[in-house]
Amino acid sequence: MRIIITGSSSGIGRAAATALAALGHDIAVVGRSRARVEEVAREVNGDPFVADFDSIAEVRKLAAELLDKYPRIDALANNAGGVIDKRAITPDGFERTWQSNVLAPFVLTQMLLPRLLESNATVVFTSSVAQKFGTVDVTDPNSTGGVWLRGFSAYGQAKRADAMLAKELARRTPLSTYSFHPGGVATRFAGLDQSPVSGLVRRFMRTPEEGAALLVRLLTEEVHAASGSYFTAWDKPDKGLVSQALDPSEGAKLWELLERESAQHP
């Protein structure tokens, strides 16, 4: 299978790329650091693609490059994103957490959609248990609830939106689409490399390989759950998913909001 993994130059994405390549799949490695992207691409014998999700123009360029390169795409893992500890607005005019975690993957998925439909592809969004704590404001996601909390309030909103996107994509297309929580993973994303208690904390966290295991299964194995399901474990679809994410009307409003936002940067 040809599998595109965003955010695959480090952490969970890199571990997933490595595991999937070992299973014989062809990997498109996507990240913002050219050096790391090219390093991982060499390791997995894949193709490197560089894009900064703080720029919708770069996301659109990425999509065009992928479409030009691959006549068939079997799976897309929308894995890029993370916590941004200081509130900031991108040059495109959107809060950074929202753009990198939600709007950018929406634009990428939309641009790849005809190719994904041709191959009846699987699409997976990396969400988080943080979705329990971040209400999505479908009128003004840049508000992020007011209190920043070192970015975790905005991150919770974004990860809930990712789970909602998986469900809404399942409602609108015949694709197999899912979201998942990888668990607490000891990666650069978690900021452990800068923490004075990093050694102690790491003992109680998953490795990137353990965090990536569910993503690998969702991309490659038969899933005995409805398309759009959210997973915290392989056998527990939609466990812990909040009511807003389960509400089709909220999912439709989110989709329409993202269509309007993406139209601002055609």
Rank of each mutant, 00 (worst) to 15 (best):
V40G: 14
G7E: 03
T6V: 06
F152E: 07
N142D: 15
G146K: 10
L113S: 05
R171Y: 10
G146D: 09
R36I: 10
S100V: 15
G7F: 12
E259H: 10
L113K: 04
P266T: 08
D47A: 14
A186Q: 01
D54N: 13
P48R: 02
T207H: 01
A163C: 13
E209L: 01
S9N: 15
R171C: 11
A186I: 04
L62T: 11
I5Q: 00
Y70E: 07
G93F: 07
V201T: 04
L200R: 07
R172F: 09
F231T: 00
V29E: 02
R217T: 09
E95A: 00
K239N: 09
G145K: 09
P105F: 09
S176Q: 08
R188Q: 15
L241R: 12
I89K: 08
K132Q: 14
G183R: 02
A17K: 12
M164Q: 03
A213L: 11
A190R: 11
D92N: 13
T122S: 14
S243H: 09
A212M: 08
E118G: 14
T97Y: 05
L112P: 03
G145S: 12
T187A: 02
L215S: 08
L254V: 01
L103V: 11
D235N: 15
V40Y: 09
P196Q: 02
L214K: 09
A190E: 05
D47S: 12
A163K: 00
A263V: 05
H265C: 13
A161G: 05
T122H: 03
A16E: 00
A88D: 14
I27L: 12
L76P: 00
L214V: 01
R32H: 00
A170V: 02
F49W: 07
V40T: 15
F49R: 05
E250W: 07
S100N: 15
D137S: 07
A186V: 02
G156P: 00
T173Q: 01
S262W: 04
D137L: 10
R32G: 07
S9Q: 07
Q99L: 14
W98E: 06
A75R: 09
P141Q: 11
V123H: 02
N120H: 11
A252V: 10
E261A: 14
V29N: 02
Y178I: 03
E210Y: 11
H265D: 06
E38G: 07
W234S: 02
H265A: 13
I89H: 12
Q99W: 15
D85F: 12
A64C: 11
A263F: 12
T90N: 09
V123P: 03
P266D: 10
A161V: 08
A170M: 08
R42Y: 12
L108T: 00
D26L: 13
